[in-house]
């Protein structure tokens, strides 16, 4: 009985997780699929052909989304790594305030922040530009990166660095040969998930990009609200692809003892 119960619970779990994704895979290849058929009456690649045509703008959006996310990750690493190191390794006066300030953007709705800052972006010619969008993506992405990396640094021992320095290595070499290899697994996870934070941004890109910077979610959104099923499903699958790839890459580190998950329990 117990085994039967567990079996059905596991089945419900798997179906519940996979059904929304699998139905999109089927829909994207459906030529015609009317109620009440459980299976498409006709298969086709119309949605995919439309995606590949230049008029759909999917190619441009894909490129923009990837470029945006990569720039955001790069900036988050440069700006966030020193801060994360300090928060993970040092105790100093005012640390609580700094932690509070850095985590606050995760709790205050991004919409509120960007509605406020929009007027300044217009004034300083950052609205409707790529760089402006990068900056607003940093508002949710940077705190996220710092939070994850600071918990990586909390479990980091500085003894090897000190040894290297005693032996005459300069700070740059110490960072390259000692620090970087040690934090590399955690850093990879943090970078990939920061990539996803930027990759999933919708409203920030819409408001600050002003329609000039077109990203993938901006193509997807109208298809969903118009219940244009096949097209929405196809764009969804393109949009989801890096996410699945990242999950497969990190699933080993994401498990029970991971730093990235541990950071959440300790906020």
């Amino acid at each position: 009985m117990n085994r039967f119960l567990r079996g059905s619970a596991v089945t419900i779990l798997i179906v519940g997780v996979l059904l929304p994704i699998l139905s999109q895979v089927i829909w994207s290849f459906a030529g015609s699929w009317f109620f009440p058929a459980l299976w498409p009456q006709q298969w086709g690649v119309k949605a995919w052909r439309y995606l590949l045509s230049p008029s759909s703008q999917v190619g441009v959006a894909l490129w923009n989304s990837a470029l945006l996310a990569c720039t955001v990750v790069g900036l988050a690493v440069i700006i966030g790594l020193p801060a994360a190191r300090v928060l993970g390794l040092h105790h100093f006066r005012g640390k609580q305030w700094v932690t509070w300030l850095i985590t606050a953007p995760l709790f205050v709705p991004t919409l509120v922040v960007i509605m406020g800052i929009h007027i300044l972006f217009i004034r300083y010619n950052l609205a409707d530009t790529f760089m402006g969008v990068v900056l607003v993506h940093l508002i949710p992405a940077l705190p996220y990166f710092i939070l994850v990396m600071s918990s990586v640094f909390a479990n980091y021992a500085t003894e090897f660095e000190e040894t290297a320095r005693t032996l005459g290595a300069d700070p740059l070499r110490t960072f390259w040969y000692i620090t970087l290899p040690t934090i590399f697994p955690g850093l990879t996870v943090a970078m990939l998930f920061t990539f996803l934070v930027s990759w999933s941004q919708y409203i920030t890109t819409v408001l600050i990009g002003g329609g000039r910077v077109v990203s993938l979610p901006m193509i997807l959104f109208p298809f969903i609200s118009a219940t244009s099923h096949a097209n929405a499903a196809a764009v969804s699958l393109v949009f989801i692809f890096p996410a699945i790839l990242i999950l497969i890459l990190t699933s080993r580190t994401l498990g029970a003892s991971s730093d990235a998950m541990g950071s959440i329990g300790r906020v």
């Binding site: 994704i21 996803l196 990759w199 298809f223």
Partner: peptide, 14 residues
């Protein structure tokens, strides 16, 4: 890692 919008698109289909 799946964006919320993709989940929304899936729920609409269901």
């Amino acid at each position: 890692p799946v964006p919320h919008l993709v989940a929304a698109a899936g729920m609409v289909l269901l």
